[in-house]
Nucleic acid binder design. Sequence first.
RNA 1: CGGGCGGUAGCUUAGCCCGGCAAAGCGCCUGGUUUGGGACCAGGAGACCGCGAGUUCGAAUCUCGCCCGCCCGACCA
Length: 504
Amino acid sequence: MSELEEQGVPKHLTKMSENFDRWYTDVIRMTEMADWSGVRGMMVVRPYGYAMWELIQRAFDDLIKESGHENAYFPLMIPHEYFVKEAEHVEGFAPEVAWVQYAGPKPVLTPPTTWTDAEKRQQEEGWLAQPLVIRPTSETIIGPVMKRYIQSHRDLPQLLNQWCNVLRWEMRTRLFLRTAEFLWQEGHTFHATHQEAGEEVLQILENYREVAEEWLAIPVVKGRKTEVEKFAGAEYTTSIEAMMRDGLALQAGTSHHFGQNFSRAYEIEFSNRENQRELAYTTSWGMSTRMIGGLVMAHGDDSGLVMPPRVAPVQVAIVPIFRDDDSRRTVEEFLAPLTADLKGRVRFKVDRRDDRPGAKFAHWEIRGVPLRLEVGPRDVEAGQVTVVDRLSREKTALPAAGLAERLTAMLEDFHGRLYQRALDFREQHTYRPKSKQELIDIYKQGNGFSWAPFCDRTECELEIKAELGVTTRNQPFKVEGEFGDRCIWCGDPAKTVVIFARSY
RNA sequence: CGGGCGGUAGCUUAGCCCGGCAAAGCGCCUGGUUUGGGACCAGGAGACCGCGAGUUCGAAUCUCGCCCGCCCGACCA
């Protein structure tokens, strides 16, 4: 028996070390987080996965409410006329938008084969004179609407957010990471000055960092995107970037400064203090269910998920162990006051399913539940419970008295160790190549982050992408140590330091 | 969107070349024995063979079209 098998590696889960992509898909489906739906590129988020999303939502929602943001809701469909107004934005999103061009009045019972003929279209009832776009993001509907509500500098700032779904017609899809439809939040804010909008962008980015690091235990790098990687229509884009356990980067949240680009296109004007008409300064920012994919890939191991406690739907799984009705009753009686005490303090589940303990252990292990409590006759006799840690796999006995406090502390500690492990992993896979050849060698052999000086020229960046399959992730705000003053690729004077990596 | 591969019971697949009773393991249900790391025995249910056309006396099997998924390349939260 190998070491891994002794530790209870799931029977049908592909090992992470053997095939990371396969492992990822296996884990998500075996843990019942999500599944494909039969609709191309669109997934079903199952209760265990959705519970994670709800916890992430709550964490972020609380943060932005604290700074005065309010939730609202805007339509799923955007009139074509609105959508096309900001040229750069349209160009960026056009390839992946879906259109609605037909609606009623006749029920569609058979595929409309004749509609391929453009001339016939116009004659048939139901073809929309003004086609609708299904939102890939909502700038182009929120702009024209907000224009009506913004007249004076007294109407600013407007700090809006909406939780919704969006649609992007993706060709290569993967559960949570890239699906045609996904859930996210999109914030849209309107300001009287360029500087205030800039502060907003950074504040939200800091909120994203907090969600990633303090809730999901995923260390991230905050920074600014290059011209090539920025959001279509933005003046600049900032992001948080995380490293997955295969060394690839994942963009986990973005925050954009639009300057006056969108307010110019949508005529969002206000009268300033000097009673002059001025265009508003706007921002937008988003974080999606992709975060859940990041959580899986940042912390998982050969045995499945490892859940960060603060967003774990189940933090403690309790497995009662008994031989017969008598010992069952004894264990339940022992458990009753304990679970009463735990209620409201930790998210726990007593697994009373009619199954063997070993099967239950495996069940909760692959789901990444941080702590597992085994409570059997031996424990009852000793007035204790046995707790097993998902990360270290250590088994320890805890006295029944003061259990809630003890578990709460262990969950906090678990979060810290998980974060540290992810951070250590990132450090071990972060490089500082000194030459073009070194950079090439890194990605010939493997993956990871490479910090390097860069000229910030589009041609140069595209060349690197074409030759190495590596893109710039961002230009970190905090750069430690010395870097050369020449671009690592072309040798021209460097303008910035960037992180290069392959990415999801 | 191009190149390659696949879709047969809830899941994983065999059968397909060479057309002729749809099969196995896991899972599920019932009963029994078990229960501190994925149990065992016995019985049972479960399939429009991805969808649609065609060839044929006969199609899971051959042909064409479509849909869905996976892998590899061009675009992306």
